[in-house]
Design a binder for these strands. Structure first.
Lengths: 223, 223
DNA sequence: ATTTATTGGTTTGTATACAAGAAGTCAACC
DNA sequence: GGTTGACTTCTTGTATACAAACCAATAAAT
């Protein structure tokens, strides 16, 4: 298996918890590989900022409250710009993908509301698909590249576990507004709606951080 | 010597030209190292987007006109945001660093205007120092991280060789306006001035690309 | 003449061995 | 009891060897 993907997924899913040291030999044994490819994967993850130097070697990065504020500010800057650009440059294929992603999002939320927690990961995935479709419609490959490198994934993933039913439905409504704005080529409206959307996510995360000890928060399973 | 820095500098300075394939063995011999550390450096540069896959291995990335447009759009988004944040969060130490950088910039341009081309690299360096000081004053580590990873350096470096005396002085004036805005905590003014500043740079680059064949442009010495 | 198949050389991908350097431990001394 | 120092052990950094995949060149066939 590919070492880079394996380690990255493990970090996002919380198998490797923040602060945990990642020894090369240990990883190599878990992956049935030698240290050489593992080292290369680590160097890439380090360049992305997902792991940081820790005691001669690296460990999983942990996020302070300040980090989370900064990351969401950055993300809202990039994605609201993406939304406005998408409104200007979207073509028919983009609209279809956006619509599809949003319909799947609606379905996933609907399923979740009348059953259990098991479908949360599905919601996360489809939400991501919608956001990626917007960035893709913005037609700026470099913007796309950078947004994909914002180390927001581990946080967003967890944050969905804290959404109330009301906030999930509200999030769906905002997705629809953003879609409409992009369809109608209303760039400024798309920008503002996306900005608001991401700041709602930010508030949701930060509220939870007030309740729970931050140090416990990004260690272990989302809950 | 550190393989990562060596290769990166070689790309920025134009020693390794775009499209050129970077063989591991060749690099290793040039650096008096084995292939192992060279491979790691390459993996990092690939994660940053400075080198791209090329025939089972990597080569120096070359930029199309579209790339340059997109990169400058992204850079203006990030840096104008940085300027507005700097106006809000700057402290006295930030102001001193900004002032110092700008005074050195003024001196470097002055020296250049009454002598030769040799001091262009000095201008590039001090200009970079000013821009970094602004990002630093914005007090968002993640923003800082991402701006430093925008693959703009090889382009900006070359662009200074094309500035007319007039445009250099104009650039200095805009730097001063940005500084004043940040000092006076005028966030919106700082943002707009920075946006304008970077778009002037963008226009300057794109104008030159109209004259000269793009394929020749990022190959070999700046001129 | 153009296209395809085969073969040889070159280059990357992976494993492993060895050296150098931290970090942790235990003990002795202040 | 705490701090310092040497020693041991574990982990990373680098080099090298080998295997496998790819590229290119050459030759043959249509």
């Amino acid at each position: 298996m590919d070492a880079y993907k394996f380690i990255k997924d493990a970090i996002i899913l919380g198998k490797y918890v923040p602060g945990m040291r990642l020894g090369e030999e240990t990883l190599a044994k878990e992956l049935n590989l030698s240290r050489t490819p593992v080292r290369e994967a680590i160097k890439q993850l380090e360049a992305e900022g997902l792991v940081v130097p820790l005691k001669r070697g690296v460990g999983v990065r942990s996020f302070t409250k300040e980090d989370i504020k900064e990351i969401y500010d950055l993300r809202s800057l990039l994605e609201s710009y993406a939304a406005s650009q998408a409104a200007m440059h979207r073509n028919e294929a983009d609209l279809i993908e956006l619509k599809t992603a949003n319909e799947l999002y609606e379905k996933a939320i609907h399923d979740h509301l009348q059953s259990d927690m098991a479908s949360i990961r599905k919601i996360v995935k489809v939400n991501q698909r919608f956001h990626e479709a917007i960035v893709s419609a913005a037609k700026n490959k470099h913007l796309h590249f950078h947004i994909s490198k914002v180390v927001v994934v581990p946080i967003v993933f967890r944050s969905f576990y804290w959404y109330s039913d009301f906030h999930l439905q509200q999030s769906l409504e905002v997705h629809k507004i953003i879609y409409k704005a992009i369809e109608n080529k209303e760039a400024e409206r798309a920008r503002i709606a996306m900005h608001e959307h991401i700041f709602q996510g930010r508030d949701n995360v930060l509220n939870h951080l007030n309740d729970i000890k931050i140090s416990h928060f990004f260690r272990g399973e989302p809950g």
